[in-house]
Design a protein around this nucleic acid. Structure first.
Lengths: 138, 138
DNA sequence: GAGACACTCACGTAGCGTAAGCGTCA
DNA sequence: CTGACGCTTACGCTACGTGAGTGTCT
């Protein structure tokens, strides 16, 4: 099965993304299928799936789809070996910026988690307080 | 200043929420100002601000505004002492449900953070890899 | 040809941001 | 009376969900 090209349903299953999401990612130029059947069905290769999984792993960082597109573009550019030194430097600079943003987002996430846990704790406390009050009505 | 009633600008400053957000929260019945001037300006009291801050602390848990509204409603109901035992029990049940959801969200947040940090790390690695490659062009 | 699968519109949603045009308060 | 501040109305945005109606693959 699907040794070479898979269609969107299988890709969805393997990535955990919805059909709509996968199509939308193509619409905004984030991940495009490397081929189509004559009838118009999208055909994905393994690298395509890998790219989708990469996007999925980026999502917790809360990048916009546009940012992810740019990040992927930089990675692609660096992967293409036939690049002039100047361009490489530019792409490396962009990567470094993304790294900085990513670090910042991680920090924000840690804070968020802390706030969330504090709230969960205070909710638990409120519940047991109310339970005590409920213990003796009248 | 503002010993009793403050208007929306000051509230925004004190809570860190935007005017738009505060007005929107009112629109969906989440937090409403306890008064208005004859001319229509919103007037908030200290408890109003506290409520807004409470909402702000809930946000990391990723509740929908509707869920928060319900949660606040349950808390309000429990605060009102003149409640029948039955109603109290119902509200307590709802609180317990929220607690369960909150715990689950915390778990999800922790996972998210982990994924995020993994990605940040792999990004760092990729950058230094590319730096090494850039070291000797030609 | 029948069923599973896919396609393209296209409208709906949450949670606000962002003017525009106008009224209110000190 | 003039800023500074606030009001409503309304359209825009992101990242999809959710049909409807139709075509494609095996």
């Amino acid at each position: 099965v699907s040794l070479q090209r898979m269609q969107i349903g299988e890709v969805a299953e393997r990535t955990g993304l919805s059909l709509r999401t996968i199509r939308y990612y193509e619409e905004v130029g984030l991940v495009r299928p490397s081929a189509r059947t004559p009838g118009g069905f999208r055909l994905y290769t393994e690298p395509d799936v890998a790219r989708l999984n990469l996007v999925k792993r980026m999502k917790p960082l809360d990048f916009s789809l546009e940012e992810m597109r740019d990040l992927l573009a930089s990675l692609d550019a660096l992967e293409a070996v036939d690049e002039t030194g100047q361009d490489r430097d530019a792409q490396l600079q962009r990567l470094a910026m993304f790294r900085a943003v990513a670090d910042e987002r991680c920090r924000a996430l840690r804070e968020q988690l802390e706030t969330a846990e504090e709230f969960a704790t205070s909710l638990r406390r409120e519940i047991s307080r109310q339970r005590r009050l409920a213990g003796r009505p009248r």
